[in-house]
Design a protein around this nucleic acid. Sequence first.
DNA 1: ACCTGAACACCGTTCAAGT
DNA 2: ACCTGAACACCGTTCAAGT
Lengths: 222, 222
Amino acid sequence: MPKAKISRPQIIQASLQTLASCQSLDQFSMRKVATALHIDASTIYWYFESKQAILQAMADEIAAQISFPDASLAWQTQLTQLFSTIFDVYTTHSHAAELMIATIPSSEVRLTLMNHIIGILVSAGFSEEQGSLALSTIDFFLTGLVMDLSKERQFRTAINNKQAAYLHDQVTQIHQITHDEHLIHMQNSVNNRNSQSAKQQFEAGLKLILKGLLAEKNVDLN
Amino acid sequence: MPKAKISRPQIIQASLQTLASCQSLDQFSMRKVATALHIDASTIYWYFESKQAILQAMADEIAAQISFPDASLAWQTQLTQLFSTIFDVYTTHSHAAELMIATIPSSEVRLTLMNHIIGILVSAGFSEEQGSLALSTIDFFLTGLVMDLSKERQFRTAINNKQAAYLHDQVTQIHQITHDEHLIHMQNSVNNRNSQSAKQQFEAGLKLILKGLLAEKNVDLN
DNA sequence: ACCTGAACACCGTTCAAGT
DNA sequence: ACCTGAACACCGTTCAAGT
């Protein structure tokens, strides 16, 4: 074989597929991507300076799929719609949340997205401070929730895998302890978690934060 | 040398010290802990079944340092005090937030802590659902914020380390792009970030969520 | 009961050498 | 300009063997 005609976008694409077939972000490796592309691992280093650079590119690729809502809508509606899209994008690509956390929002796509979200709030009359605070609050809440989801998925497939078996044990321990120690609120929390879909949970949390914002706004008007 | 007289607590202690001297959680390794204890890496496996088990134990050790506030105080005061303590504990141990995220809250310490927080809210008249939602919202917000902090610390020490140098470049890129693309809200966000201490930022975010809770409560009373 | 050494199956990254 | 092979310095984990 003479040349493998590799390109940056091709590597990113293969990386996303490879990640999807991994059980967690730290199982993702350069060597696996290289194998998928039928090239040597060292070849990747001609296109990307490091593994971190690939992670950044993957995160950007995912972030690029997030579309902005109609700017003429009410700010609450805009935020609800936008974060609903982000939730869907994050849950479509497995480990997307881990990727976002492992990575710095230094690209135009991600910075523009963040800028847009703060912009919605500033246009609605909030201060820049309130806007960026609300953004990070919602974003971290969403990221944390989606990460927990993917951890749950991980131990549900705890059949042959040893690491997953350990996680599975930890979860049964949660039930054990909450029961033995009569941690009734935790028991309710687990039950509540199972009765509600993840998206419903996210929407409820988002609503809570939006209510807090609204309360701040009303105070300002006085 | 005959015996090295090792114990579980000793390993946990050495692990926390080793982690503190690492620039990130994934630089933390069994072999480094073993070297610190002057034992072979394989010895650790007599006391802990896996690296994950050590991470869990480390997280529990840190979580155990969190003390509960006086239960007779108002719920807002209790939450503010408690999360202030958590913030301090998280920032005292470097990479504590990463540890909490990489780990499952399956121990008695952590479950009791979570149960207590929901309990504060339920005692204040909130539903179990609202309580557990508020807990995860605040917790994820706090964790995300502290993690960003430690990433910043990481690239500030970007002298000889190559990985840190890359992160440093990413940050200058943030300034570059926000300037070139006229992302004014992001510019303000960065400035705001620098003018406020991390703890002030957290307190502002917590206040926002508490306001949202209060608004929900008032609606319920109608 | 406790600890080691060697080994296995992996990593990210570099770099001289090839085409 | 693009790609490889071998090497370096690491990983987590296992397990026969030692005391």
